[in-house]
Design a protein around this nucleic acid. Structure first.
Lengths: 223, 223
DNA sequence: GTGCAACTTTGCATTCGACGCAATATCGGC
DNA sequence: GCCGATATTGCGTCGAATGCAAAGTTGCAC
């Protein structure tokens, strides 16, 4: 990890995107800030071009030209073109929320606490809600992206899996794998509804609605 | 480059597969049977080579040499190398079971009937249980394949989605999207357990166990 | 500010997946 | 046996992705 440093020493730069990104993450050295700025500008360039021309008419070369870096550099930042398009960026689970969940809190009921954990995760989306919604929208009508998106989710699935395993202990009453899959389903369904109803709606409310529906389904209340 | 003249010794095995496939589906013309046979032998060759050498050391060219077809033909059969590896083959929902589900049967409870529908789907796996298990095993420790696998599932998801929509009518008590996602989750979790416990176990039992776990989770029975 | 070490970017070459196209071979029906 | 329909094949091409080593930046100590 990186220790928080001095307040932002504003360096005058001619690049707008660079300057913007520099001020939003003013904590570490110039090298690190430049790195983040480039990553952001690559994601921006990718999403902008794809929105205009469609996913398959946009080459990595074109993206790099727009962002002003070499194509080789692109692949220093992203494993694939699709990753840049979806703006896949590390999305950590808050250690505080995770610890509370593992210890059996806050309510004591597994599902309720899982819901709480997921809510904090969703709210802490680092890249900003706007980009997250854009990614969900892209996924919604590009099947190929859904695949990549799920793979990304998968890395989180294993994190949730571990937390559930820790909470349940050595003789789990339910398969942690299953719980983790459920968690991913809830996040995905919530994101989808959130996307289709507008960014200003409350993600927690959507999450609660999804949980309620699934509960009704499994309670045998539906015909 | 390659000088693919007459088929060499390696084709003998694929000829066996060809003969096998020819006799197992004796209903349509020779042309159709040959087509299926080739598809089977390509899947076989792909899985065999990948099991031996690892996914990234196996080129499409190598697969085609082993199966005795041109690389161009490979892509007449599969959209991608990964599809051949997973043995993705059309997996239709039985129209009879689907109709019964849509009409509100057999039990009247949405979840119970969904379970029944999925059970028939799983049991009717066309490619044979053995290959299905191999695919699940591959997916389990090759993250990249998970993506493709999910995309394949996605096409089924939309089919389930339609059935649920038809059953629930114009004012659905639950989002059909969510139900479809749940269905895919159940199938996937069931497949995973089935794979890890041996092919001779009963898939229906695994499905029932998964459903029971999720039900307990949403009933608030778990801590 | 000079210089050195660590890290990044970049150009270049290469491999391989995937597709379009046109020529050739095969099948099915008559 | 011939002809239309369908499948296979070879060839050319595009573009994603990676390894490698040279050139460029940044961080840091003095």
């Amino acid at each position: 990890m990186i220790a928080p440093g001095r307040p932002d020493a504003t360096t005058s730069s001619s690049l707008e995107a660079l300057a913007l990104a520099l001020e939003t993450s003013g904590d570490v050295g110039l090298r690190e800030r430049k790195k983040r700025a480039r990553r952001e500008s690559l994601i921006d360039a990718t999403q902008r071009l794809v929105e205009r021309d469609g996913i398959d008419s946009v080459t990595v070369e074109a993206i790099c030209e727009a962002a002003g870096v070499s194509t080789r550099t692109f692949f220093n930042y992203f494993e694939s073109k699709d990753d840049a398009l979806l703006g896949h960026v590390p999305w950590p689970v808050s250690p505080v929320a995770a610890a509370r969940f593992v210890e059996g809190g806050p309510s004591g009921d597994l599902l309720v606490d899982l819901e709480e954990l997921l809510a904090t995760v969703i709210e802490q989306q680092p890249a900003g809600h706007e980009r997250f919604r854009r990614a969900i929208a892209l996924v919604a009508h590009e099947p190929r992206l859904l695949a990549r998106h799920m793979a990304w989710f998968e890395s989180h699935r294993s994190e949730i899996h571990q937390l559930v395993e820790q909470r349940l202990g050595p003789a789990p009453s339910v398969d942690p794998e299953t719980v983790a899959s459920i968690a991913m389903l809830l996040v995905h369904a919530t994101a989808q509804r959130w996307e289709s109803t507008g960014a200003d709606s409350d993600p927690r409310a959507h999450l609660a609605a999804v949980v309620a529906e699934v509960r009704a389904l499994f309670a045998g209340d539906l015909r």
